[in-house]
Amino acid sequence: MKLHKESTGTIVVATILFAVIAFAAIYFLEMWSLLIIVPLLVIYGLVFWFFRVPKRNILDHKENVIAPVDGKVVMIKEVEEDEFLKEKAIQVSIFMSPLNVHICRYPVTGKVVYKKYHPGKYLVAWHEKSSTENERTTVAVQAYNDHKVVFRQIAGYVARRIVFYCNEGDQAKAGHEFGFIKFGSRMDVFLPLNTEITCKIGDKTKGGIDVIAKLK
């Protein structure tokens, strides 16, 4: 299983903690140490599972809007996007549990025209205000037919580290990686009002594969 490059520090810390606690349990609890070691081993294994990099056959897309993450569609609504677009847009929000792959992918193909990091709170990721009050990043891409599509990584109650690798002027390719969020979190995509939405609330998405909308 291939692991993401963001896993290194977390796995080193997890390995040290596991080794120290397991040694202490064996030393002090002897035969009862398995009561501590077995649950710890499960948690340790979940850390590796969280940072897995699945093999995905990423196709070329022009007008399609691709699911940027693995997760569940929790919101589709018309909102005012007042950071970059300064106008009404359709917001599609996808929630990621700690068990989902947390690689963040470009939802559309085009040119990166805006990026910004915002420090903030750590409300639970499905909270509606997390989009504007939590720690987050905002990226905008000029896409098909010159539509500007905005997408936002949002830290949740558990997620405390967001990374994004893109810069203004970069070429974005739908389905390809641009960042990573550690542990539970959310991604919002803001689309033009005339966009054809092809997903619905409750849908499970596979990042880089599933089409969630079509630009016109």
Score class of each variant (00 low, 15 high):
Val150Arg: 09
Leu123Asp: 03
Tyr144His: 13
Pro98Trp: 06
Ser131Ala: 11
Arg105Ile: 01
Val158Leu: 15
Cys104Gln: 04
Gly120Lys: 11
Cys166Val: 05
Ala125Lys: 03
Lys148Asn: 09
Cys104His: 00
Tyr114Leu: 11
Gly71Tyr: 07
Leu85Thr: 08
Val69Ser: 11
Val158Ser: 10
Ala155Gly: 13
Leu123Arg: 05
Val74Ile: 15
Phe151Asn: 05
Ser130Arg: 09
Lys116Gly: 07
Pro119Glu: 12
Lys111Arg: 14
Ala89Gln: 10
Lys115Val: 14
Thr137Leu: 06
Ile94His: 08
Val149Thr: 05
Gln91Met: 14
Pro119Val: 08
Ala125Met: 04
Lys115Glu: 13
Val124Leu: 00
Glu168Met: 01
Cys166Lys: 00
Val92Gly: 03
Val69Arg: 10
Glu168Lys: 12
Ile76Met: 08
Tyr122Asp: 01
Asp70Pro: 12
Ser131Lys: 06
Ile103Cys: 09
Glu87Gly: 02
Ile103Asp: 06
Met75Trp: 13
Val149Glu: 10
Asp170Ile: 07
Thr137Lys: 07
Glu81Gly: 00
Val139Tyr: 01
Ala174Phe: 14
Lys86Gln: 12
Met75Pro: 00
Phe151Lys: 05
Pro107Tyr: 08
Tyr165Leu: 01
Ile154Gln: 08
Lys88Met: 08
Val163Thr: 02
Pro98Gln: 07
Gly71Gln: 10
Val149Tyr: 06
Lys72Thr: 15
Ala172Lys: 12
His147Lys: 13
Ala67Gly: 11
Tyr165Ala: 00
Pro68Phe: 13
Phe164Glu: 07
Val139Lys: 03
Pro68Met: 13
Lys129Ser: 13
Val79Met: 09
Gln153His: 15
Thr137Cys: 05
His147Met: 05
Asn134Leu: 14
Val92Pro: 06
Glu78Leu: 01
Asp82Ser: 09
Gln153Gly: 13
Asn145Gln: 13
Glu81Lys: 02
Ala155Asn: 14
Tyr157Phe: 14
Gly156Phe: 04
Lys86His: 15
Gly110Lys: 02
Ile94Thr: 06
Ile103His: 06
Lys88Cys: 06
Val101Leu: 04
Arg152Asn: 07
Ser130Met: 11
Thr138Asp: 05
Tyr165His: 05
Glu78Asn: 08
Ser131Cys: 03
Gly71Leu: 12
Asn100Met: 02
Lys148Cys: 02
Val163Gln: 00
Lys77His: 00
Arg161Cys: 00
Asn100Gln: 06
Gln91Asn: 10
Val141Leu: 04
His147Ala: 11
Tyr157Asp: 10
Phe164Asp: 01
